[in-house]
Design a protein around this nucleic acid. Structure first.
Lengths: 247, 247
DNA sequence: CAGTGGTCTAGACCACTGA
DNA sequence: CAGTGGTCTAGACCACTGA
């Protein structure tokens, strides 16, 4: 029972959900209410074309977007299937600590403990794609939220990508901001761990050496080459990472 | 200098990157090499149409996908702009512990410490959208990786969404698997923290009470209603969360 | 073979922006 | 007003799947 529409539709003047969006909302609602079990066959493009009285390209866009959102699986020559949810990846934002603190309406400042050139140890050289003993920049900062130490940032930088690194005033700019400006982040891997601070970190953060800390280690790559390796240590009692998952 | 192509293009028999994909690859490569600074104006659809000799819908698809990947910002009536990278959200996968352990090629088993009905305390009732004192299901399990305790799972479940919860054999199925089957996950919030285990958790995990632990607290919603609240405690020395960011 | 999704086209109408 | 992106259409050719 196809709905017949005029060949040239007039778009309603304001708003009126776009047809591709209507299809998405309809299918999302049905999926949410368990209309199809994971792996079950869903309507074909042709069926949706007939049901909504719209062109195939429009249905195709809706289904393609649902696929990229992980809600459906599509197989050429076979059909569209309800996806397995729950095993879906979640979104987590790791922002520059300066932005994060300001976004909360708090005051941020940083104290620089160390900022100099060193020679790469073998492990570090490997991570930064440099020969052992090559010069690297090393900085150690503490970031404060309204005067309370929130993060200890221990960072190594590949000098080729940020030759001016040592002359930057990290009281005014964060290392992350400087690096983003000179070497656009194109790839990064990170781990989130729980561990104890080193004795130096404990002192800088003004926490007992027994305080469990949230440790994020991140390696950043720009234009195919490693740029920086950073260890971010946060007192467990003062910091947590938040995330969400909404398909 | 537009490239003129025949009106009806023959698609190469095998592969040959699709035009919309060629445009994406081209723009990604340029962005990666810093062709446009963040916020800078990029070519319009019309310019790309001329440059690639393809139709506007095809260019539009390429740009729309780049936008949904967070690489460009588009503003109707104004243009397409290079996005701010780096402040982009990363992807993090929190999988069912059973799957995660098996994916490593290890042996998983679980031991059930507790599985019963309780009355909701006020805080819990709030989280699960129930009245205070309402019945809730409470389970406490330990998950083992090759015989080593990896995760302590302390979970509360809204009985309305999983009435059979207490009769499930969690030696064979994980709570996550059961809940996914009866109530498709539609929304979830989580936090990742570092902290000390409770004395009970320390005993169950066979770690000292001073061992820093990675704690994940997650609340899951299905069809608009809270389903479960879980606290996952992992010894910091045995577990870490990994993630990546690749635009 | 029929049915499925993957993709492209040439044209259209529209809303929005900023000069 | 010209230029931008947002969206839709009707048709087309294709590759792939499974009967």
């Amino acid at each position: 029972m196809a709905i017949i529409r005029p060949m040239k539709t007039r778009h309603a003047p304001h708003a009126a959900v776009a047809p591709y969006h209507r299809v998405k909302l309809h299918l999302k609602a049905e999926l949410q209410h368990g209309r199809w079990k994971p792996g079950e066959l869903m309507p074909s493009e042709a069926e949706l074309v007939a049901q909504f009285g719209i062109s195939r390209m429009t249905v195709n866009r809706a289904l393609r977007e649902l696929q990229s959102e992980g809600l459906v699986d599509r197989v050429q020559g076979v059909g569209t299937f309800a996806a397995q949810l729950g095993r879906v990846s979640s979104t987590l934002t790791i922002r520059d600590i300066h932005e994060e603190i300001e976004a909360r309406g708090h005051r941020h400042h940083a104290e620089v403990t160390l900022c100099r050139e060193e020679r790469a140890t073998s492990g570090l050289a490997l991570q930064l794609g440099l020969p052992e003993g090559a010069p690297v920049f090393h900085s150690l900062l503490v970031h404060f939220d309204n005067g309370i130490a929130l993060q200890c940032e221990d960072r190594f930088v590949n000098p080729q990508h940020a030759p001016d690194y040592l002359s930057v005033d990290f009281g005014r700019t964060t290392p992350t901001q400087h690096l983003l400006a000179v070497a656009p982040t194109w790839e990064a891997q990170f781990t989130i761990q729980s561990g104890l601070p080193t004795s130096q970190e404990a002192a800088l953060l003004a926490v007992p050496a027994t305080e469990p800390c949230l440790v994020i280690v991140r390696r950043t790559v720009s234009r195919g080459e490693p740029v920086t390796l950073v260890r971010l240590v946060h007192p467990g009692s003062r910091y947590q990472v938040q995330g969400q998952f909404t398909p």
